[in-house]
Design a protein around this nucleic acid. Structure first.
Length: 461
DNA sequence: GCATGATCATGC
DNA sequence: GCATGATCATGC
């Protein structure tokens, strides 16, 4: 039988199936193929170990697919259980590094991305906390043929978007949140892993193509479990996501809130009335944010109101954070940084004219890297310090506690403010507050400043 | 009118 | 009962 890199597609699939139900330790014990044993790394890099012990391949960093001439790329990737018993990808799937100097010369069909990744043999393992990597079990496999994939058109559109940024001399402005399914994630230790780009003198952060974490989560749910209850936005249409969204927006643009409420037969004075309206526009029963396409692309819909004077009264809230989580994290791997780098926001704009809010359209936006790495980082680190030092309450006046958290006037992009049912809705503090001695405090969250975000809505004002 | 603390209505 | 998106209330 042929070996290692020379396996054909059927053999690759067969061997992959034979690994199901086994941990790396078990596979290594079997010693089916004891090749390359001398340079086994003990770091527990499962991808490398699978290559060596399951397929008998030497480690390589070739720029062609792992199996040649079969043209199959091997990927070993984790998923996990999250609350409610649902499954989720644990990581984005990192594909090939983007060579800014070369990749733009190609069409999608002869791109390096396509050459390397058009056929991917996936091996999924279930990640569990506090377990050695080599004890985690491989549970599922799937040969992913991108050419037959229902998402191919979107993936191609994403690839072209990234390439266009390179051609425009804007490789340094690329963000993983730019695109829907195929992203360009940063690769390298930190922001100092810079590379030249062909149409600008500004060095750009090294990036790799990846399937976004959100996209991988949907693959996990589709091929491993939990898929049935996910509602699709695109039903019985050949439109792409963006075309479909545009059609819907054009249909309702210019209508007043009252007209929309009548049309959809909603009578409510809920604070989230506008988000109820947009769910109805898209004909979805669940929340728009919970639909397959929004989940896969990690797009979060938000409604905003612009007042007659062209300003927003309110800032934009995030879910409450846990004080105990913030102190455990580093900025580089923090939840907030991860979210801002990978999330695209779809703002549904309602503007007040005369005495009525009118639906004006949508704006897709993700926060520029520059703001994340300066203002947001600054706020996050100060928040962590404040909690760690137990230095939350500054003083109390009229029964209201003034805090030392970063305020709106202190930071151009974002701030920290309460976010709970009321002031008694609290989370535990890791360190008791010095002034008051309390060991729990009103839930807080990060907010995007209204006077920062308003600048992106110029076209609606 | 802005900044900040506080809270509401919904849906699961 | 809780998380969440969204907005209200008040003092300077």
């Amino acid at each position: 039988m042929k070996k290692g890199r020379l396996y054909n597609r059927q053999e690759i699939e067969l061997i992959s199936k034979s690994a199901i139900g086994k941990s790396m330790n078990e596979i290594m014990k079997e010693e089916v193929i004891p090749i390359g044993k001398d340079n086994v790394s003990n770091k527990g890099n499962l991808g490398q170990l699978v290559e060596q012990f399951l397929f008998g391949m030497e480690n390589n960093s070739e720029s062609e697919p792992d199996f040649m001439p079969a043209g199959v790329e091997l990927k070993v990737t984790p998923y996990k259980k999250i609350k409610g018993g649902k499954l989720s990808a644990k990581e984005r799937l990192v594909l090939n590094i983007i060579n800014y100097m070369d990749e733009y010369k190609n069409d999608f069909e002869n791109s390096h991305f396509w050459f390397k990744n058009k056929t991917i043999q996936l091996l999924w393992y279930l990640w569990e906390p506090n377990k050695d990597n080599k004890d985690l079990k491989i549970t599922h496999e799937k040969l992913l043929e991108l050419s037959e994939n229902e998402d191919l058109n979107q993936i191609k559109e994403d690839w072209e978007y990234i390439i266009k940024k390179i051609k425009d001399g804007k490789a340094h402005e690329i963000s993983e949140a730019d695109t829907m399914y195929l992203g360009a994630c940063s690769k390298g230790a930190n922001a100092s892993s810079l590379r030249p780009q062909p149409f600008s003198n500004i060095p750009a952060m090294q990036r790799a193509f990846c399937f976004k974490n959100s996209y991988m989560t949907q693959l996990v749910r589709k091929y491993i479990g939990d898929y049935s209850d996910v509602e699709k936005v695109l039903k019985g249409t050949t439109d792409t996501f963006h075309e479909y969204v545009n059609n819907i927006i054009n249909k309702y643009k210019g209508k007043t809130q009252k007209e929309l409420m009548q049309k959809f037969n909603i009578d409510s004075n809920a604070k989230n009335i506008n988000s109820m309206l947009i769910s109805r526009m898209f004909l979805v029963k669940s929340k728009l944010a919970d639909t397959e396409e929004f989940q896969k692309a990690n797009i979060i819909p938000k409604t905003i109101r612009i007042e007659k004077n062209g300003k927003m009264k309110e800032s934009i809230s995030f879910p409450a954070f846990k004080f105990t989580d913030i102190v455990k994290q580093d900025w580089e791997t923090s939840d907030l940084r991860e979210e801002l780098e990978t999330t695209k926001y779809m703002f549904f704009v309602f503007k007040k004219e005369k005495e009525e809010y009118i639906f004006k359209g949508i704006k897709l936006w993700n926060m520029p890297e520059m703001d994340i790495e300066t203002s947001v980082m600054d706020m996050w680190k100060k928040t962590q310090d404040t909690i760690l030092e137990g230095n939350i309450v500054r003083y109390i006046k009229d029964g209201k506690r003034k805090t030392n958290f970063v305020g709106m006037s202190e930071n151009k992009v974002c701030h920290v403010r309460p976010h709970g049912r009321n002031s008694k809705d609290t989370f535990k503090l890791p360190v008791a507050d010095k002034l008051t001695g309390v060991t729990e405090y009103t839930k807080q969250c990060f907010w995007i400043n209204n006077n920062y975000i308003i600048q992106i809505f110029k076209e609606f004002i």
